[in-house]
Design a protein around this nucleic acid. Structure first.
Lengths: 110, 110
DNA sequence: TCTATAGTTCGATAGCGATCGAACTATAGA
DNA sequence: TCTATAGTTCGATCGCTATCGAACTATAGA
């Protein structure tokens, strides 16, 4: 059963999580996932090569930020929001709220 | 007037802030500053060379996380908590709470 | 069985950033 | 004016990581 398993809750490390989030591509993935709920890689790839995206998904997965559910050929990714909330209360909230705000700001400005 | 000026509130960038926090040395500095309120560099340098610490303070300063008030020879550093709270509501809270929790965990375990 | 699709793995490259010693700057105090 | 102190700047090194093409794996469907 090839199901990329995410690390346990207690093993999640703040530095690792912050480092995973501190990348524009990954923060974008996280924000889109928040909006979409669940999505396969293809839906999240813009114009970037698959190998790059696969790398970013791996970083997000190993840091514990997202979970990948494999169904046939497709990999369905979703944020581990409930677990992250337990381990790092308020963290994802503050970051997702900000990316929302940033998006709104982008849409309305100029 | 040699007063390292911190960037304006609106200029603070989430990625930049996250990247600044995603380093063990800097996260430690931030956590200590939170406890101490204000401190000069010397008080925050462990056994590391001054030049390394100066680099980390610069990163924290330029990302907008801390402010440096110069008084004679000493540089007094403090977190820009109120401003960060306005710009990224809840972010520092969640991170500082976690580092506190981590500290407690470290102190009480084994 | 053949093909298309979804995603991973591999290997190479390139750039950024952490680290540190050494030289430098600037202020306080003797 | 001389010295000690506090911190910055410079330059080099080194490791990590983002990026990408190419090859690979595995599943679904014809």
């Amino acid at each position: 059963m090839p199901c990329h398993d995410s690390p346990d809750l207690e093993k999640l490390d703040l530095i690792t999580v912050l480092r995973a989030l501190a990348d524009p591509v990954r923060l974008d993935i996280v924000q889109r996932l928040y909006v979409l709920g669940e999505a396969n890689c293809a839906a999240l790839i813009g114009s970037r090569p698959k190998s790059s995206m696969s790398h970013h998904f791996q970083v997000l997965r190993e840091s514990g930020i997202l979970h990948t559910r494999i169904e046939g050929v497709q990999h369905h990714n979703s944020l581990r929001l409930q677990e992250l909330e337990i381990r790092f209360p308020g963290l994802m909230d503050s970051i997702l709220k900000n990316t929302e705000a940033a998006q709104l700001r982008r849409q309305t400005s100029s």
